[in-house]
Structure formats: structure tokens, C-alpha cells
Amino acid sequence: MTDSAMSSQSKRWPQFAAMLLMTALAVGCNTSEVAEEADPDVENAPPETEAATTTDEVETGTGTLQLVANGEDFVRQGFTTKDGWDITFDRVLVTLANVEAHQTEPPYDPDSDDELQAIETITLVAAPETIDLAAGDAEAEPILVSEEDVPGGQYNALSWDVVVAESGEAEGAAIALFGQASKDGRTLDFALRLDEPLSYTCGEFVGDERKGIVKADANANVEATLHFDHIFGDAELAADDELNAGALGFEPLAALAEGDTVEADSARLAAELDAAAYEQLTAAIASLGHVGEGHCKLN
């Protein structure tokens, strides 16, 4: 190799060094961004546990999917409203229809504008079916509505309607509430018949456990949950809690009592509650539908 060739070669080394530096910078910038975003105080290391249920297990075979409806402890055990009325329910009749469980990909988010994209849909209730959410004792399980044999998989979305009953005690009402309300030594029997139909599309159940995961030859369930504290409020929460701020309470209904009885359907409520209270009531009714603590979109 001549001196001039060696000199020429040596002049090229800065170019190769620059190329290496550019590559290093490209990789380094990406890594540093993430390291700075992570808060070391809450960084959580992955556990070293073996998977108990694999996706392959879930997606093969056929299992049983149940639909349960849940009015929660408010309905089963009673509660105190935001304005101090102690409520107990004899019957809480809700008429469900068009209940479908879905496997969605991507997972459906009811808080977004995205459409539900189902890769599997199972009809759990087609024709209207009236159920009593207050059935059973204070410790009763949620009400079993229906069950179907279904392909395995994760049913991570639920759509359902509440429709006006065409027969039975709830005839003419989508939701009918019967019970007693007591305050300061006064007890009122109430019968409220709400005829506003509702239609919800919900994401995944949110609660103590994960629901809707159907494995071969096993049972799983999905849950339609109704939050009646949205109508009446909850004395256990602060008065300025958003739930109580949006709730009607019972006092406006007690004002409609004739003797010791409050009987009202939607028409009477619309006519005799003041406009703000009726608006509050209809908004609260519209917000009843959930999947556990998970959200639903009102269609």
C-alpha cells in the first residue's frame, strides 16, 4: 500500500466514525425518552408467575356463557338516599331484550367514538324478558337470566336493551320499582313505573373478577348491572360527590305522595316534577346501565 493510498484511507475514518455515531444517537434517543417518562417510584417489575390460563386454552372448544343481571346491594339490601330516606325494595322489575355478548378486536371502548368490531356475537336474550332484580334475600346472587353454549373465547363487550314490558306486573313500564321509603318516622309505599326505553353498548365488565372468559366445557358469565344509586343518591357519599349531585333523591318523589303512597308513572313524573328535577331523573335513568363498574354507551 502506497503512502498516498494510506493517507486517503486515513481520511475516510472520520466518515465511518460519523456513521457509527449517527447510528448510536438514533438508538440512544429512543431509549432515553422512555427512561425519563418512567417514574422510578412507581415502576413495577413483572412477576415471575406461570400463566394459569392461556389464550389457546380459552379459544378452543365450547363452553357455557351465562347472562346475569345485577341491581347490586342497593336493591337487595336497601340503602339510604342522599336526602335521608331509607329505601327497601320489594320488587325491581326490568325488561331486557336484544342482549348480545361479543368478542371484540380491538377491545371495545364505550367512551370512544369507535364502532364495536365483533369477531363473535352470541344472542343471550332475544325476546323481551322481565326479571326481578330484588328476588332472593339480602345476600342473593345476581339474577341468572339465560345461558347458551358458545365458542370459547373472551366475551369482552355486551349490548342490551331495556324495553317496555307488554304484559305482567311491569306492563307499560321498562323499569318498575316497588318498595318502601322511610324517614323521620314516616313510611311511604312507592310504585314507580318508568317507561323510558334504553339501549346500551358496553365494554368489558369491571369488578373483583374478570368475566366473560369462556373455556372449554366450563361456565363463564357476563353481567348487565344497573346502578340505582344514580337515581336516589347515596348517603354514604359526600353531599357534593358527583353521584349525589346528579341524583334526584327521594324527597321530590315523596312530595307526590297521596296519603302514605307514592304511585307514579313517567307521564305523572313529567307533569308534576319541576322541570329541573324531571331532567335530573331522566338523565339518572339513562345512566343506570353498566357492566359492573365498567361503562356503557347509551345508544
Partner: peptide
Amino acid sequence: STPAATTAEQ
């Protein structure tokens, strides 16, 4: 356009 049906804090 109602994003979610709720009166409670979500």
C-alpha cells in the same frame, strides 16, 4: 354524541 351514560363521576 353522548359519550357515556352517566351522572356519576367516571
